[in-house]
Amino acid sequence: MRVVVDPDKCVGHGRCYALAPDVFEPDDDGYCMVRHYEVWPAVAELVRRAVANCPEEALTIED
């Protein structure tokens, strides 16, 4: 399982790095940076939740 962010869609709501800080982090402007594209099992649920909570639909899971 991999997670990717579409930088054209991200506007910096910050829901992803609030919900799954081990996987996402804010850049200097508050926009999403993916720290680890490869999602490991222990954080998979949090990543799914982060994806579901992005108001811009900027995150995608690739199985």
């Binding site: 506007v11 709501h13 939740r49 909570n53 811009e56």
Partner: peptide, 20 residues
């Protein structure tokens, strides 16, 4: 709530600057 994609801070390019 599992899925909460609310727009209390608006959304799109004008997402509230002060939201954080």
């Amino acid at each position: 709530r599992e899925r909460n994609r609310h727009f209390a801070f608006g959304g799109g390019p004008h997402r509230c600057l002060g939201s954080h």
